[in-house]
Design a protein around this nucleic acid. Structure first.
Lengths: 227, 227
DNA sequence: ACCTGAACACCGTTCAAGT
DNA sequence: ACCTGAACACCGTTCAAGT
């Protein structure tokens, strides 16, 4: 699945070389790491559309085209920023755990929380190649589901179901979150006879996102691996 | 939830007026409807990034700025194109149905199919205001879940869980679908010792998307409304 | 090995004007 | 009521060049 980025090596040599003398007063030299870190800052502050190569260069105190020596193009910046945000340290004492279900819930809530910390990341993830950090998360999820008793033949379906649920929930939350006022306005517009049921249940005003995520996840896990 | 677009009336008068004489040989006059229909064509052909106001105008045989009399801005075009693609006619004989679960599956599969017919639409939906067609779908879903025995207190959680699942599945499918070759390449890269489990289960090569969607949906429905 | 500015081919939208 | 072109303030990236 996915993988828009080929494995082709970048122009940059992969070997390290003797550091040139640092000027202690000026900006540190450009590097892939600095570019990625700054891109994440910019994305956090301005959103997906707010990241421009020109803006990024300005923030780094360099010329625009200098970036292109460290990075293939803007898509490359997106890929690197995305993967950098998806690192996972794992649950406290994974190895000895016996409560597989709690482990799974922990993993998925951490995954969701990581993406919500960077609201642009969720909607980017399905569009890009799967980086190593997200693959590690899927690998761990897979191992844990297996231990939890999900049959091998159901494993891929289980993983993709959880993926779908987490991604849908997180993309939605990160997108809708932008304006509570608008949610109220939308709920307002439901008044009348066309949307009686969802008006009565106050569907668009229900803003316990964390609780709803957890409850829906429990329902799904009940279906996947009945206790 | 959502609603970036205010209810403010557009510049365009809402009343109809006597038709000017049509030139049978030339293009029909510009109209909101023509603009939206052409935008959908363009989006289908070129994707989200492929829609430009200039390209749209050219395809309509008009000047770029002529569009702005019928439409507020580019975001408006997205909103209108999105809603136009989400119409729902309803299941064959909804009124007399007794099989609520089958009705729900039908509704959600139709929703997904509508979005997959226009691969740009799924990723756009969570980012935009909820239009009348998607609200109608949610209203019908809500009514049906109620009849299926979902408690009122669980109703919103059930709706959002299904929303999350459908949106996650459809966005993912529409995005990953772009290249089967790349999926194979990604699976290839799993070789080694880091991703043993998902490599063995061939997670990234499992391309029975329709079947996986249906199976996962069944699991979720089992959790939501046990038979 | 690393960085740069000029230039190209694009964008969405404002504005003042035409019919 | 409807349409228009010129202009503005942007984009990402190629290229040929600098150190």
């Amino acid at each position: 699945m996915a993988a828009k980025r080929s494995g082709a090596p970048s122009k940059r040599s992969l070997r390290t070389r003797p550091q040139p003398v640092l000027e202690p007063t000026g900006e540190p030299p450009l590097s892939r790491e600095r570019i990625v870190a700054t891109a994440v800052e910019l994305l956090d502050a301005q959103g997906l559309d707010g990241l421009t190569m020109r803006g990024l260069a300005e923030r780094l105190g360099s010329g625009v085209m200098s970036l292109y020596w460290h990075v293939d193009n803007k898509e490359d910046v997106f890929d690197l920023a995305l993967d950098s945000v998806l690192e996972y340290r794992g649950p406290p004492q994974m190895a000895e755990s016996q409560d597989w279900r709690a482990d799974i819930v922990h993993m998925l809530e951490d995954w969701r929380a990581s993406m919500l910390r960077h609201s642009w990341s969720a909607s980017l993830l399905p569009r890009r190649a799967l980086g190593s950090n997200i693959l590690s998360r899927l690998e761990l999820l897979s191992k844990t589901l297996s231990k939890a008793g999900v049959a091998d033949t159901d494993l891929n379906v289980a993983i993709w179901s959880l993926w779908n649920y987490v991604m849908g929930a997180t993309i939605t939350r990160a997108s809708f979150d932008l304006s509570d006022d608008d949610m109220a306005a939308a709920q307002q517009r439901l008044t009348g006879e066309r949307y009686t049921t969802i008006e009565r249940s106050r569907l668009l005003l229900d803003n316990d996102w964390d609780g709803a995520f957890r409850k829906g996840l429990d329902f799904l896990l009940d279906g996947l691996a009945p206790r």
